[in-house]
Amino acid sequence: MAAHLPTEPLQIVEPFRGRNDTRRNLLGLSREDLKAALTEAGLEPFRARQVWQWIYWHGVRDFGLMTNIAKKTRDRLSELFVVERPEIVTEQRSVDGTRKWLLRFPDGNEAETVYIPEEDRGSVCVSSQVGCTLTCSFCHTGTQPLVRNLAPAEIVGQFMVARDSYGEWPTPTETTRMLSNIVMMGMGEPLYNFDNVATALKIVMDEQGIALSRRRITLSTSGVVPMIPKVGDVLDVNLAVSLHAVNDAVRDTLVPINRKWPIEELLAACAAYPGARNSRRITFEYAMLKGVNDSDADARELVRLLKPIHAKVNLIPFNPWPGAPYECSSNNRMHRFAEIVNDGGLSAPIRTPRGRDIFAACGQLKSASQRGRREKVAL
Protein backbone atom coordinates (compact mmCIF):
# COMPACT_ATOMS: atom_id res chain seq x y z
CA MET A 1 0.00 0.00 0.00
CA ALA A 2 1.40 3.39 -0.95
CA ALA A 3 1.87 5.89 1.86
CA HIS A 4 -0.39 8.94 1.77
CA LEU A 5 1.61 12.13 1.63
CA PRO A 6 0.49 14.92 4.01
CA THR A 7 -1.33 17.87 2.54
CA GLU A 8 -0.32 21.45 3.25
CA PRO A 9 -1.84 22.84 6.47
CA LEU A 10 -4.75 25.17 5.89
CA GLN A 11 -3.75 27.44 8.73
CA ILE A 12 -0.31 28.46 9.94
CA VAL A 13 -0.04 30.53 13.09
CA GLU A 14 2.96 32.63 14.13
CA PRO A 15 5.38 30.63 16.32
CA PHE A 16 4.75 30.91 20.04
CA ARG A 17 7.49 32.92 21.71
CA GLY A 18 6.33 32.69 25.31
CA ARG A 19 5.23 35.35 27.78
CA ASN A 20 7.46 38.11 29.16
CA ASP A 21 5.78 38.18 32.56
CA THR A 22 5.58 35.97 35.61
CA ARG A 23 1.81 35.71 35.95
CA ARG A 24 0.67 32.25 36.97
CA ASN A 25 -1.39 30.16 34.58
CA LEU A 26 -4.62 29.04 36.24
CA LEU A 27 -5.33 26.41 33.60
CA GLY A 28 -4.74 22.87 34.84
CA LEU A 29 -4.95 23.63 38.56
CA SER A 30 -7.18 21.34 40.59
CA ARG A 31 -10.12 22.95 42.38
CA GLU A 32 -8.15 22.92 45.62
CA ASP A 33 -5.04 24.45 44.07
CA LEU A 34 -7.09 27.13 42.30
CA LYS A 35 -8.75 28.08 45.59
CA ALA A 36 -5.35 28.20 47.31
CA ALA A 37 -3.87 30.39 44.56
CA LEU A 38 -6.70 32.93 44.78
CA THR A 39 -6.65 32.94 48.57
CA GLU A 40 -2.90 33.55 48.56
CA ALA A 41 -3.55 36.52 46.29
CA GLY A 42 -5.89 38.00 48.88
CA LEU A 43 -9.12 37.09 47.07
CA GLU A 44 -12.17 35.51 48.64
CA PRO A 45 -12.12 31.68 48.45
CA PHE A 46 -15.60 31.56 46.87
CA ARG A 47 -14.16 33.31 43.80
CA ALA A 48 -12.50 30.02 42.86
CA ARG A 49 -15.89 28.50 41.97
CA GLN A 50 -16.75 31.48 39.75
CA VAL A 51 -13.39 31.50 37.99
CA TRP A 52 -13.52 27.71 37.53
CA GLN A 53 -16.87 27.93 35.74
CA TRP A 54 -15.72 30.76 33.50
CA ILE A 55 -12.55 28.89 32.49
CA TYR A 56 -13.97 25.40 31.96
CA TRP A 57 -17.71 25.80 31.28
CA HIS A 58 -17.63 29.00 29.25
CA GLY A 59 -14.09 28.71 27.85
CA VAL A 60 -13.24 32.30 28.77
CA ARG A 61 -9.59 33.40 28.77
CA ASP A 62 -10.08 37.12 29.49
CA PHE A 63 -10.80 37.94 33.14
CA GLY A 64 -12.54 41.11 31.95
CA LEU A 65 -15.35 38.95 30.52
CA MET A 66 -16.11 37.26 33.84
CA THR A 67 -19.12 39.49 34.37
CA ASN A 68 -20.40 38.14 37.70
CA ILE A 69 -17.12 39.14 39.36
CA ALA A 70 -16.56 42.73 40.56
CA LYS A 71 -14.33 44.84 38.30
CA LYS A 72 -11.80 45.45 41.07
CA THR A 73 -11.42 41.70 41.54
CA ARG A 74 -11.15 41.13 37.79
CA ASP A 75 -8.38 43.70 37.62
CA ARG A 76 -6.55 41.93 40.44
CA LEU A 77 -6.90 38.60 38.65
CA SER A 78 -5.49 40.12 35.46
CA GLU A 79 -2.48 41.48 37.36
CA LEU A 80 -1.53 38.12 38.85
CA PHE A 81 -2.84 35.38 36.57
CA VAL A 82 -3.46 34.24 33.01
CA VAL A 83 -5.61 31.53 31.42
CA GLU A 84 -3.18 30.21 28.81
CA ARG A 85 -3.87 27.51 26.21
CA PRO A 86 -1.22 25.73 24.17
CA GLU A 87 -0.42 27.74 21.04
CA ILE A 88 -1.40 26.41 17.61
CA VAL A 89 1.59 26.14 15.27
CA THR A 90 -0.32 24.47 12.42
CA GLU A 91 -3.84 23.22 11.88
CA GLN A 92 -4.35 20.62 9.16
CA ARG A 93 -7.64 19.34 7.77
CA SER A 94 -8.05 15.98 6.09
CA VAL A 95 -10.31 15.28 3.15
CA ASP A 96 -12.38 13.09 5.53
CA GLY A 97 -12.99 15.89 8.06
CA THR A 98 -10.27 14.94 10.54
CA ARG A 99 -8.35 17.88 12.01
CA LYS A 100 -4.84 17.83 13.45
CA TRP A 101 -3.15 20.54 15.49
CA LEU A 102 0.55 20.86 16.16
CA LEU A 103 0.63 22.61 19.54
CA ARG A 104 3.53 24.44 21.12
CA PHE A 105 4.01 24.79 24.87
CA PRO A 106 5.74 27.64 26.76
CA ASP A 107 9.13 25.89 26.72
CA GLY A 108 8.99 25.52 22.94
CA ASN A 109 8.27 21.79 22.89
CA GLU A 110 5.46 20.53 20.67
CA ALA A 111 2.90 17.71 20.51
CA GLU A 112 0.04 16.78 18.21
CA THR A 113 -3.69 16.58 18.90
CA VAL A 114 -6.33 15.14 16.56
CA TYR A 115 -10.11 15.45 16.22
CA ILE A 116 -11.81 12.44 14.61
CA PRO A 117 -15.40 13.14 13.48
CA GLU A 118 -18.17 10.56 13.30
CA GLU A 119 -21.75 10.96 12.06
CA ASP A 120 -23.29 11.96 15.39
CA ARG A 121 -20.25 12.57 17.61
CA GLY A 122 -16.49 12.99 17.56
CA SER A 123 -13.39 12.18 19.59
CA VAL A 124 -10.43 14.36 20.49
CA CYS A 125 -7.25 12.28 20.57
CA VAL A 126 -5.07 13.82 23.29
CA SER A 127 -1.33 13.42 23.88
CA SER A 128 0.17 12.82 27.33
CA GLN A 129 3.88 13.23 26.52
CA VAL A 130 6.20 14.93 24.06
CA GLY A 131 7.65 11.91 22.30
CA CYS A 132 7.43 8.44 23.82
CA THR A 133 9.65 6.04 25.74
CA LEU A 134 8.11 2.78 24.52
CA THR A 135 9.57 2.40 20.98
CA CYS A 136 6.69 0.26 19.66
CA SER A 137 8.02 -0.80 16.28
CA PHE A 138 4.83 -0.13 14.27
CA CYS A 139 4.24 3.37 15.72
CA HIS A 140 5.67 6.60 14.29
CA THR A 141 5.60 8.28 17.72
CA GLY A 142 7.87 5.51 19.00
CA THR A 143 10.64 6.78 16.72
CA GLN A 144 10.73 10.08 18.68
CA PRO A 145 12.56 9.67 22.01
CA LEU A 146 10.70 10.94 25.05
CA VAL A 147 11.30 14.65 25.68
CA ARG A 148 9.11 15.17 28.74
CA ASN A 149 5.73 14.59 30.34
CA LEU A 150 2.94 17.06 29.67
CA ALA A 151 1.52 19.07 32.57
CA PRO A 152 -2.21 19.07 33.42
CA ALA A 153 -2.66 22.48 31.72
CA GLU A 154 -1.06 21.12 28.55
CA ILE A 155 -3.28 18.03 28.56
CA VAL A 156 -6.65 19.63 29.27
CA GLY A 157 -5.59 22.56 27.09
CA GLN A 158 -5.52 20.30 24.03
CA PHE A 159 -9.25 19.61 24.35
CA MET A 160 -9.92 23.30 24.95
CA VAL A 161 -8.00 24.26 21.80
CA ALA A 162 -10.20 21.84 19.85
CA ARG A 163 -13.32 23.42 21.33
CA ASP A 164 -12.01 26.86 20.39
CA SER A 165 -11.50 25.67 16.82
CA TYR A 166 -15.07 24.40 16.57
CA GLY A 167 -16.66 27.19 18.63
CA GLU A 168 -18.22 24.62 20.94
CA TRP A 169 -18.39 26.47 24.23
CA PRO A 170 -21.96 26.55 25.58
CA THR A 171 -24.34 29.37 24.78
CA PRO A 172 -27.72 30.00 26.45
CA THR A 173 -29.50 28.20 23.59
CA GLU A 174 -27.00 25.62 22.29
CA THR A 175 -25.20 22.83 24.12
CA THR A 176 -24.92 20.26 21.31
CA ARG A 177 -21.48 18.74 21.04
CA MET A 178 -19.51 17.47 18.06
CA LEU A 179 -16.50 17.08 20.36
CA SER A 180 -18.22 14.55 22.57
CA ASN A 181 -15.42 12.17 23.58
CA ILE A 182 -11.79 12.16 24.66
CA VAL A 183 -9.37 9.35 23.87
CA MET A 184 -5.98 9.39 25.58
CA MET A 185 -4.38 7.78 22.53
CA GLY A 186 -2.09 10.54 21.24
CA MET A 187 1.66 10.82 21.71
CA GLY A 188 3.11 9.07 24.76
CA GLU A 189 2.11 6.46 27.34
CA PRO A 190 -0.53 7.96 29.70
CA LEU A 191 0.32 5.61 32.57
CA TYR A 192 3.91 6.89 32.64
CA ASN A 193 2.45 10.34 33.35
CA PHE A 194 -0.48 9.24 35.45
CA ASP A 195 -0.68 11.99 38.07
CA ASN A 196 -0.81 14.76 35.47
CA VAL A 197 -3.24 12.81 33.28
CA ALA A 198 -5.49 12.14 36.28
CA THR A 199 -5.54 15.82 37.30
CA ALA A 200 -6.45 16.84 33.75
CA LEU A 201 -9.19 14.22 33.35
CA LYS A 202 -10.74 15.10 36.71
CA ILE A 203 -11.03 18.69 35.41
CA VAL A 204 -12.63 17.37 32.22
CA MET A 205 -15.14 15.30 34.22
CA ASP A 206 -16.01 18.05 36.74
CA GLU A 207 -19.75 18.75 36.54
CA GLN A 208 -19.25 22.51 36.90
CA GLY A 209 -16.56 22.59 34.25
CA ILE A 210 -16.14 20.76 30.95
CA ALA A 211 -18.47 18.09 32.32
CA LEU A 212 -17.69 15.09 30.12
CA SER A 213 -18.95 11.80 31.53
CA ARG A 214 -16.29 9.22 32.44
CA ARG A 215 -18.07 6.94 29.96
CA ARG A 216 -17.02 9.34 27.19
CA ILE A 217 -13.35 9.14 28.12
CA THR A 218 -11.04 6.29 27.08
CA LEU A 219 -7.50 5.88 28.34
CA SER A 220 -5.21 3.70 26.24
CA THR A 221 -2.14 1.93 27.59
CA SER A 222 0.51 -0.27 26.04
CA GLY A 223 0.45 -2.37 29.18
CA VAL A 224 1.90 -0.69 32.29
CA VAL A 225 0.40 -3.46 34.39
CA PRO A 226 0.98 -2.11 37.95
CA MET A 227 -0.83 1.14 37.08
CA ILE A 228 -3.98 -0.40 35.60
CA PRO A 229 -5.71 -0.91 38.99
CA LYS A 230 -4.96 2.72 39.85
CA VAL A 231 -6.75 3.88 36.72
CA GLY A 232 -9.83 2.04 37.90
CA ASP A 233 -9.58 3.34 41.46
CA VAL A 234 -8.86 6.99 40.65
CA LEU A 235 -10.64 7.58 37.32
CA ASP A 236 -12.77 4.56 36.37
CA VAL A 237 -12.77 5.66 32.73
CA ASN A 238 -12.97 3.30 29.77
CA LEU A 239 -9.81 1.27 29.30
CA ALA A 240 -8.17 0.42 25.97
CA VAL A 241 -5.15 -1.85 25.71
CA SER A 242 -2.68 -1.90 22.81
CA LEU A 243 -2.37 -5.65 22.41
CA HIS A 244 -1.38 -6.21 18.74
CA ALA A 245 -0.16 -9.80 19.19
CA VAL A 246 -1.32 -13.08 20.71
CA ASN A 247 2.04 -14.44 21.89
CA ASP A 248 4.95 -12.96 23.77
CA ALA A 249 7.50 -13.62 21.05
CA VAL A 250 5.71 -11.34 18.56
CA ARG A 251 4.55 -8.80 21.12
CA ASP A 252 8.09 -8.42 22.50
CA THR A 253 9.01 -6.96 19.11
CA LEU A 254 5.88 -4.93 18.42
CA VAL A 255 5.37 -3.62 21.97
CA PRO A 256 8.70 -3.96 23.84
CA ILE A 257 7.13 -3.22 27.23
CA ASN A 258 5.81 -6.77 26.93
CA ARG A 259 9.25 -8.00 27.99
CA LYS A 260 8.57 -6.46 31.40
CA TRP A 261 4.88 -7.32 31.69
CA PRO A 262 4.00 -10.20 29.35
CA ILE A 263 0.56 -10.99 27.96
CA GLU A 264 -0.52 -13.28 30.81
CA GLU A 265 0.11 -10.57 33.44
CA LEU A 266 -1.49 -7.90 31.27
CA LEU A 267 -4.70 -9.87 30.71
CA ALA A 268 -4.94 -10.71 34.42
CA ALA A 269 -4.85 -6.98 35.25
CA CYS A 270 -7.49 -6.32 32.59
CA ALA A 271 -9.78 -9.04 33.95
CA ALA A 272 -9.68 -7.32 37.35
CA TYR A 273 -10.37 -3.82 35.99
CA PRO A 274 -13.73 -2.40 37.22
CA GLY A 275 -14.93 -1.84 33.65
CA ALA A 276 -14.55 -5.55 32.95
CA ARG A 277 -17.15 -6.38 35.58
CA ASN A 278 -20.03 -4.22 34.38
CA SER A 279 -21.65 -3.16 31.13
CA ARG A 280 -18.48 -1.53 29.81
CA ARG A 281 -16.10 -3.70 27.85
CA ILE A 282 -12.34 -3.28 27.71
CA THR A 283 -11.18 -2.48 24.19
CA PHE A 284 -8.17 -4.35 22.84
CA GLU A 285 -6.46 -2.55 19.97
CA TYR A 286 -4.95 -4.76 17.30
CA ALA A 287 -2.95 -3.30 14.42
CA MET A 288 -3.24 -5.48 11.32
CA LEU A 289 0.30 -6.15 10.04
CA LYS A 290 0.79 -8.18 6.88
CA GLY A 291 2.38 -11.55 7.60
CA VAL A 292 3.12 -10.65 11.23
CA ASN A 293 -0.02 -11.05 13.34
CA ASP A 294 -2.89 -11.58 10.88
CA SER A 295 -3.21 -15.34 10.33
CA ASP A 296 -6.30 -17.44 10.99
CA ALA A 297 -4.40 -19.07 13.86
CA ASP A 298 -3.72 -15.63 15.35
CA ALA A 299 -7.44 -14.81 15.18
CA ARG A 300 -8.43 -18.03 16.92
CA GLU A 301 -5.82 -17.49 19.63
CA LEU A 302 -7.07 -13.94 20.14
CA VAL A 303 -10.54 -15.33 20.82
CA ARG A 304 -9.13 -17.85 23.29
CA LEU A 305 -7.17 -15.20 25.17
CA LEU A 306 -9.95 -12.62 25.41
CA LYS A 307 -13.03 -14.83 25.86
CA PRO A 308 -12.70 -14.84 29.70
CA ILE A 309 -12.65 -11.00 29.71
CA HIS A 310 -15.60 -8.71 29.00
CA ALA A 311 -13.83 -7.41 25.90
CA LYS A 312 -14.14 -6.10 22.39
CA VAL A 313 -11.47 -5.80 19.70
CA ASN A 314 -10.67 -2.86 17.45
CA LEU A 315 -8.90 -4.10 14.33
CA ILE A 316 -6.77 -1.22 13.08
CA PRO A 317 -5.47 -1.23 9.52
CA PHE A 318 -1.79 -0.34 9.76
CA ASN A 319 -1.28 3.32 8.92
CA PRO A 320 1.96 3.88 6.96
CA TRP A 321 4.64 6.42 7.82
CA PRO A 322 8.06 7.18 6.29
CA GLY A 323 10.47 4.31 6.90
CA ALA A 324 7.88 2.03 8.51
CA PRO A 325 9.03 -1.61 8.57
CA TYR A 326 5.51 -3.04 8.10
CA GLU A 327 2.72 -3.20 5.55
CA CYS A 328 -1.02 -3.27 6.16
CA SER A 329 -2.81 -6.60 5.85
CA SER A 330 -4.94 -6.96 2.73
CA ASN A 331 -8.66 -6.18 2.90
CA ASN A 332 -9.51 -9.85 2.37
CA ARG A 333 -7.15 -10.93 5.17
CA MET A 334 -8.56 -8.32 7.59
CA HIS A 335 -12.15 -9.33 6.87
CA ARG A 336 -11.33 -13.02 7.29
CA PHE A 337 -9.59 -12.24 10.60
CA ALA A 338 -12.60 -10.21 11.77
CA GLU A 339 -14.98 -13.00 10.74
CA ILE A 340 -13.14 -15.56 12.89
CA VAL A 341 -13.08 -13.25 15.92
CA ASN A 342 -16.75 -12.30 15.51
CA ASP A 343 -17.74 -15.96 15.12
CA GLY A 344 -15.83 -16.61 18.33
CA GLY A 345 -18.24 -14.33 20.21
CA LEU A 346 -16.21 -11.12 20.35
CA SER A 347 -17.08 -7.88 18.58
CA ALA A 348 -14.23 -7.07 16.17
CA PRO A 349 -15.01 -4.15 13.86
CA ILE A 350 -12.35 -3.01 11.39
CA ARG A 351 -11.65 0.64 12.12
CA THR A 352 -11.92 2.97 9.14
CA PRO A 353 -8.61 4.88 8.88
CA ARG A 354 -9.10 8.60 9.37
CA GLY A 355 -6.72 11.44 8.57
CA ARG A 356 -4.08 9.40 6.77
CA ASP A 357 -3.48 12.20 4.25
CA ILE A 358 -2.28 14.52 7.04
CA PHE A 359 -0.53 11.83 9.13
CA ALA A 360 -3.25 12.06 11.78
CA ALA A 361 -4.27 8.39 11.84
CA CYS A 362 -3.52 5.94 14.64
CA GLY A 363 0.23 5.43 15.02
CA GLN A 364 1.24 8.34 12.77
CA LEU A 365 1.70 11.20 15.27
CA LYS A 366 5.09 12.77 15.83
CA SER A 367 6.62 16.21 16.51
CA ALA A 368 10.11 17.58 15.90
CA SER A 369 10.86 18.26 19.59
CA GLN A 370 14.07 16.73 20.93
CA ARG A 371 15.45 16.34 24.41
CA GLY A 372 18.77 17.95 25.23
CA ARG A 373 21.62 15.70 26.31
CA ARG A 374 21.68 16.88 29.91
CA GLU A 375 17.93 16.88 30.44
CA LYS A 376 16.41 14.16 32.61
CA VAL A 377 12.86 12.92 32.17
CA ALA A 378 10.85 11.89 35.23
CA LEU A 379 8.41 9.03 34.67
Rank of each mutant, 00 (worst) to 15 (best):
M334W: 01
V197Y: 07
G142E: 06
S128L: 02
D107G: 00
D294L: 01
F46I: 03
G59C: 08
A198W: 14
I12L: 00
K230S: 00
V303I: 00
I55D: 10
S180T: 13
V225N: 04
N25R: 06
F337W: 11
P86A: 00
D298N: 12
E327K: 07
I358H: 04
L146I: 11
I210E: 10
G64L: 15
F105V: 04
M66E: 13
P190W: 09
R354V: 05
G232Q: 11
I282Q: 06
W54I: 00
G186T: 06
P9Q: 10
V51N: 08
I282A: 04
V114L: 02
W321G: 01
S242C: 05
V225C: 01
Y56M: 09
E119D: 12
V82E: 11
P322V: 12
N258Q: 11
G28K: 09
Y166V: 10
R351I: 00
D96N: 12
V13I: 08
E327A: 03
V89F: 07
Q129I: 12
A272E: 15
E44W: 04
S165I: 05
C270F: 12
G223S: 08
E87I: 07
L38H: 15
V231L: 15
Q92M: 11
N238F: 06
S222D: 09
V303K: 11
T199H: 03
P145W: 13
G275S: 06
Q364I: 03
S347L: 14
R215Q: 10
G188C: 04
G344Q: 01
T173W: 13
A269C: 00
S295C: 04
E87C: 04
A249Y: 13
Q11K: 12
A311L: 06
G223A: 06
E84N: 09
P86S: 09
E375N: 06
D195A: 01
D248S: 04
L10M: 10
G275D: 02
A338D: 03
P45L: 07
L5T: 14
V377C: 09
V82D: 13
A299F: 02
P226F: 12
M288I: 05
A41G: 07
T218D: 09
T283Q: 10
W261D: 03
K312C: 01
R259E: 06
D252G: 04
H4T: 08
G363A: 02
P6K: 04
C362R: 11
W52S: 03
M187R: 05
T141V: 13
E301P: 05
L267C: 07
V303E: 04
S242E: 14
C362D: 14
R99K: 09
V234T: 14
W54Q: 03
D62M: 10
R148G: 02
E44Y: 11
P86N: 14
R333N: 06
L212T: 00
D294W: 10
D296K: 12
M205F: 12
N331T: 09
N332W: 14
T143G: 00
V204M: 11
T133G: 14
S180F: 14
S137I: 04
D120P: 10
T67Q: 12
E112Y: 00
C362V: 07
P45M: 09
K202A: 00
T141Q: 13
E189L: 09
M288W: 05
V95E: 15
G18E: 07
A2L: 13
R374I: 02
R356V: 03
P172D: 08
P172M: 08
L315Q: 07
E327M: 04
A153C: 08
K366S: 01
V114Q: 13
